[in-house]
């Protein structure tokens, strides 16, 4: 595994402006870090931030909470500085516009897809796709969105391990919200594990460490019975 180096904004990362990617900027033909994070120099130079709020991008799958209902839109909190708009036409059924709350009311949680984000950061959501739906059961937790890739793991290794070991349904939204459903005890453990992943996200060999942790916890649970 490559040793990752922590950089702060303004650190010089390279001399070739063509390699500049996410989290960097170019000044006088040189590449500088624009963020506090870890450098990735494999194909191009990018900085993976260690913190920060979720900024929606087209195609992201997110978990949102309905904040307000207007005549044509549901206004959805997506754990970001920008609210999401779910237009009636993006709802999977025909909607009676005089009675919007009948279909989706304030406080309900949805799995939605970011259909579009315009330059002024107007965020449009959609529910008209497979997997997208209203969440009527289960639990949702919030973690920092920059840790989401670690919760998913390489090719989904972490998340599939969690699902398999704990026999839970889990959905990870790009905006740092995670939905879980299953046996209450198992969901409790899954949540504890996810928070542990969040805390230790910057350490190496995480999947193995978590596997070990889960094994021990499951062992203790069995002994208590």
């Amino acid at each position: 595994m490559v040793e990752r180096e922590v950089v702060v904004p303004g650190d010089l990362l390279g001399e070739d402006p063509k390699l500049a990617s996410h989290g960097t900027y170019v000044q006088d033909g040189k590449v500088y870090s624009a963020n506090y994070g870890l450098v990735d120099r494999r194909s191009n130079i990018k900085v993976i931030p260690l913190s920060g709020r979720y900024i929606p991008a087209r195609g992201d799958l997110v978990i949102g909470k309905v904040n307000d209902v207007t005549r044509s839109n549901w206004i959805v909190d997506i754990n970001s500085p920008y609210e999401g708009l779910l237009h009636v036409s993006e709802f999977p059924e025909r909607v009676d516009q005089d009675n919007m709350s009948k279909y989706l009311h304030v406080g309900e949680l949805i799995i939605a897809k970011v259909a579009d984000v315009d330059p002024s950061m107007k965020v449009e959501l959609t529910l008209r796709e497979e997997h997208l739906r209203i969440l009527r059961q289960g639990r949702v937790i919030d973690i920092s969105h920059v840790k989401i890739p670690r919760v998913i793991g390489r090719n989904g290794s972490m998340i599939s391990m969690l699902k398999k070991e704990l026999d839970c349904s889990i959905f990870v939204g790009q905006n740092g919200r995670i939905w879980l459903r299953g046996d209450e005890k198992m969901v409790d453990l899954a949540i504890r594990t996810i928070f542990k992943i969040e805390r230790e996200a910057h350490t190496s060999g995480l999947t193995d460490k978590i596997k070990e942790y889960l094994k021990n916890e499951l062992e203790t649970m069995r002994n208590q019975k």
């Binding site: 990752r4 997997h131 998913i152 959905f171 990870v172 790009q174």
Partner: peptide, 25 residues
């Protein structure tokens, strides 16, 4: 100060290209 915040053990492996999780139902 910023570098110290994450200590010496920073070697996360590849952050995945961002992709939503799937439900396993």
């Amino acid at each position: 100060a910023l570098i110290e915040k994450y200590g010496q053990d920073i070697t996360p492996d590849v952050a995945q290209p961002i992709e939503g999780g799937e439900t396993n139902e």
